[in-house]
Design a protein around this nucleic acid. Structure first.
Lengths: 354, 354
DNA sequence: GTTAGCACTCTGGCACGGAGAGTGCTAACC
DNA sequence: GGTTAGCACTCTCCGTGCCAGAGTGCTAAC
């Protein structure tokens, strides 16, 4: 059987594919190594366990399955899952009933766009029984739609920036001299005229041309600086926030009975650099992406899988929604669900920009 | 030794207190049951192990220590920790060096008040090596300082409410008829005059008196309703958000090697009702509160302890900062740190309201 | 009241052994 | 040639027994 040796999974005959599929699906649902016996009993393969054993051995030399030890059943390798996802199984769209239910839930929170991405994570978590993750849609470079300045006391003001992309940013500004709300409103009016519709760099340019000698000029300058800095900082961060829900689902999986594994995954999730990079790459791809076990860069993530999809408008704001689960997860379902939710988020964003 | 039987820990002689203290401090640092031998070796008690054993037995009948099994050392009970915290140990103020370091960190984020409470949690986590938790300061009933309306498209507007307490709330409003920014600004001006400085209920009253027949009256009415609802919803939630950091520290403790315990604690932390109640009670108390193991209402929290303190201004906004750790934690240090951080937060809030 | 001494108890680790599961191989079969 | 029955073999898992070690509680002496 080691006759047709192959390193990369080549064209597998249909029967082998069916058996690989059966092993994966059985393992996904039972979490225990799958033996030849169990396969012939539970799947109508039309062959005996001995034949199945031969094929299992083949799949193992092809690198798609392994053995925890000699007398145990087979479990899929990461490559096995990958092959399964790419070549064997067609992704199942989310059942219409669930689609309707989710749409209904999103209807409930109606127009509180800042909560959509949280709801997306929660929904993904409950449908897939894994952890749902989501980031708010964030533009590569934000545009100021409008700014407002509110006095807090005579030396302190709150700067409120409404972005074209829907987000609101807030910052405090200390003032050199006692200033009342009237002066602040005047400056707000002035600056609004100057910077509305601009990005951080454009605004910085426009603000540099403010005449400090003009009435309220120094104040406008000071506040202008704060605006530019706030926007720059916002643009500089790849992700604003990563919201996750249902981590408890993942914690419940038998592969995480050892709390050390959990620790590793959690610590990877606290690593904003990694997540930011991931989000950027997924956002760039424009479609559902699957990262299985070893395919994840950080070692701590090598025992889990991610199914991620971007949402939003490429030119404008982009965010990511997805699912995190053990490598032993139902990929077709996860992919279908993530695809649906990202589509739904797209609709919502479109509605906002229409 | 069962002569002076007592249910509630009565006045313990000084030597017994010293031994209880030694047991607790030894157990806190080693996480293994403490035997009489170890005590005489590591603490200069001036008596033999036999005497120590007698006293340990006394402490056990007093309910302050237990035995995992006959031939094991002693571990403190929750009552033991409670007695230790209340009667034996004086809380240690945070070392000046660390105080300075923390002040410095808070200086770095300068005036982004929305981030203070996150930083507080992060700081508490890193200093105490447990999990830090914090909520933003939230008023019992919010006051509108100012409102602003920004058109998103001709049927959709973003409502921005700046609260006296510093927070900014955002909501979307769908419009019955196509409306431009000019009309929205006019309505914003009108409503600002009407509701500035009001609470939700006051605003609802004032808004009810808007004449729908007046120019822009219907629009003002619609937006007014949205304002009232947004404020009501904000007031209704006991807590806005609970931010936690350093949960990894807690996960690392040996008592959580079993991932099921972790699961329980996490699920309790997802229970907003419980947290809300807790925050309210701590906020009401006005001082550092310690909840040890069994003293926590939810069963899932019976294996951890909380050290919490309120911050903010009683009449206005109040939040909570604190630490969550295993019952086997260094209470004096935790209390000292929490006290310092809540004091620091008070200073910051005062500065904002001054 | 304190202490030395000692019997007693319980855990944790380790070796052993049998049951069970599943494999790989061989030889027969269609 | 592919398929299958049969079987020896391997490895885990689990329960049992055993031993060393830690620590207690008690007693009797100081």
């Amino acid at each position: 059987m080691a006759r047709r040796q192959r390193r990369i999974p080549g064209p597998l005959d249909l029967r082998a594919q069916a058996i690989l599929r059966a092993v994966i699906e059985e393992y996904v649902s039972t979490a225990t190594p799958v033996g030849s016996q169990a396969l012939v009993e539970r799947y109508s393969l039309g062959v005996s366990s001995a034949t199945v054993r031969n094929i299992l051995a083949e799949l193992e030399t092809a690198g798609l399955l392994t053995h925890p030890h000699t007398s145990a059943g087979r479990i899929p390798t990461d490559a096995g899952y990958r092959f399964y996802v790419e070549s064997i199984v067609e992704t199942v769209p989310l059942p219409a009933v669930e689609q309707l239910m989710i749409r209904h839930q999103f209807g409930q929170v109606e127009f509180a766009s800042e909560h959509w991405f949280r709801l997306a994570a929660t929904t993904l978590a409950s449908v897939t029984r894994a952890a749902g993750i989501a980031t708010p849609a964030k533009p590569r470079s934000a545009h100021i739609r409008r700014l407002d300045i509110v006095a807090i006391n005579d030396r302190l003001a709150s700067l409120i920036l409404v972005l074209r992309e829907g987000a609101v940013k807030q910052a405090l500004v200390t003032l050199d001299a006692p200033t009342d709300q009237a002066a602040l409103s005047a400056v707000a009016g002035l600056l609004n005229d100057r910077v509305a519709g601009m990005t951080a760099t454009q605004a910085a340019g426009a603000l540099a041309r403010i005449d400090e000698a003009a009435p309220n000029g120094a104040l406008a300058r000071r506040i202008g600086d704060r605006i530019a800095r706030t926007l720059m900082e916002y643009d500089a961060s790849a992700i604003e926030e990563v919201f996750s829900d249902g981590l408890l689902n993942v914690m419940g999986a038998p592969e995480f009975a050892d709390s050390d594994k959990l620790r590793r995954v959690f610590s990877a999730l606290e690593n904003r650099a990694y997540l930011g990079e991931l989000v950027v790459s997924v956002a760039g791809s424009g479609r559902v992406q699957v990262f299985i076990g070893q395919e994840n860069q950080p070692v701590e993530m090598r025992e889990v899988s991610l199914v991620l999809a971007p949402y939003g408008r490429p030119g404008r704001a982009i965010g990511v929604v997805g699912v995190l689960g053990p490598t032993r997860m139902s990929y077709p379902q996860a992919i279908g669900t993530v695809r649906f939710v990202s589509g739904l988020m797209n609709e919502l964003v479109d509605h906002l920009y229409a």
